[in-house]
Design a protein around this nucleic acid. Structure first.
Lengths: 158, 158
DNA sequence: TTTGAATAAATGTCGTTACATTATATGTAG
DNA sequence: CTACATATAATGTAACGACATTTATTCAAA
């Protein structure tokens, strides 16, 4: 269904303006499906993302700062997300031996197992829901990358 | 910058898989810019969206149910968002005369003025940040629409 | 070495999402 | 008309996003 039909009303000022709304709407569509998957395993989206970063570093430790750096949705509160993952036994927190301010966070065995399970489901979902062929997906990536390439701060240019 | 460079690490399982991450990331990019704009006027994103819906109905009333229907980010709590807009004097709540369960919500004069200001800024932003030409934007819209056209519930098909 | 700046994480607050529950009012069947 | 289901908002709760502040530790300079 086209974005106009989905959203009802609204004439867009331009194709670009429509694309902005379309990205927001499509993100919502994606988020809804992902969330459904995560919920079956008692996780939220940011908890899943943190687990994935931790696995990426495994068996090395990640500090909270590293988690913040790597998170897509920045400025989220990594500290409290780690709290909840620790409560569920999916991660382990240890004092960093070389810097007593820092905390070393590790994904646990349970965390690794859960993540593998969810990765498989996610893969199946992507197979089932993929309505784009290879060329389409490539073109979509190209356009999104191009979109973000807009001058970053128009008022800063001399 | 390509999504791989932006996100660091991570080889993607497929172009589609990459596109999923790219949409999430690009949405974050958009959201950040929009939020900056909204913040200058003391609004949040959902508050702005509710105001736009109310203006779309103006001078007719909108019930809370209608707001929920029209909101992109569904299942948000329209009731409490209206609370905060009312505190700021941007909307007016009245009991619906024909149904005492329902509440008629109107955008106020202040709300209309604020929205016009913000619309202008938004329009300027879109002009400044538009790195896509007409054909690009059209193609992007086509691909996003196509992406969401995937079978809605694979387990429901016989 | 002592002081002060900078860093790492945790904590606090407000508005939000997601979801469940409640309260009030309407509608309908008996 | 009464009883029960339904519709419309509002309220409650846990987790999150955004942002400011606090606490503890390290680093750097006087």
């Amino acid at each position: 269904m086209s974005i106009e039909e989905d959203i009802k009303q609204e004439q867009f000022k331009s194709e670009f303006s429509k694309a902005v709304v379309n990205i927001i709407y499509t993100h919502g569509w994606l988020h809804q499906h992902h969330q459904e998957l995560f919920k079956r395993h008692g996780l939220t989206t940011p908890q899943f993302n943190i687990l994935r970063i931790l696995r990426g570093q495994y068996p090395s430790a990640s500090t909270v700062n590293l988690l913040i750096d790597r998170m897509l949705d920045k400025s989220s509160n990594a500290s409290r997300i780690v709290d909840r993952l620790e409560t569920k036994g999916l991660v382990i927190r240890k004092q960093c031996p070389t810097d007593r301010r820092a905390v070393d966070v590790f994904i646990s065995e349970e965390g690794l197992e859960l993540l593998e399970l969810m990765d498989n489901e996610m893969g199946r979902w992507e197979t089932d829901y993929c309505a784009l062929n290879e060329a389409d997906a490539k073109e979509l990536n190209r356009l999104l990358d191009k979109m973000r390439s807009a001058i970053t701060a128009p008022e800063d240019t001399p």
